[in-house]
């Protein structure tokens, strides 16, 4: 099976899944429909009727982690091709990646020391 065919299979799997879900929705619709009533469509909050919208500027307290993650995440773009040839390249690969990881880890340590790794 050549690669393009494989991608096509995956793509059709995606489309098939969407079709499957639509079929389920159609089935559910055949059984019964929504009856609009007062307050039914207000998001449920444990017996209290909270009508206010909640889409506000949200304070994610983990942004220190998130910032480090954005940069640190890049590391694996280099690591996967490296891993594939690791055993054939041997020691050179180990040292090379050792330096790379050490440099990145330095950044992590710096962030840690400055308090990026905590709830802000």
């Amino acid at each position: 099976m050549n690669e393009i065919t494989q991608y096509a299979v995956l793509f059709s799997l995606t489309l098939g899944t969407v079709g499957f879900v639509l079929a389920i929705y159609a089935l559910a619709r055949a059984i019964g429909r929504l009856r609009a009533e007062p307050a039914k469509d207000v998001p449920a909050t444990a017996g209290a009727l909270a009508r206010d919208p909640v889409w506000v500027r949200y304070h994610a307290k983990y942004y220190g982690y998130a910032l480090l993650f954005l940069a640190f995440d890049m590391e694996m773009a280099f690591m996967y091709p490296w891993a594939v040839v690791y055993r054939e390249e041997g020691l050179v690969a180990l040292l090379d990646m050792g330096v790379f990881l050490a440099v990145l880890f330095l950044g992590l340590l710096y962030g840690w020391s400055q308090g990026a790794l905590r709830r802000q």
């Binding site: 220190g64 480090l68 940069a71 640190f72 962030g111």
Partner: peptide, 13 residues
């Protein structure tokens, strides 16, 4: 990447 991490930490935290 190291520079970015350090810079982002320095200004943001």
């Amino acid at each position: 990447i190291l520079t970015a991490m350090v810079a982002a930490t320095m200004v943001a935290i």
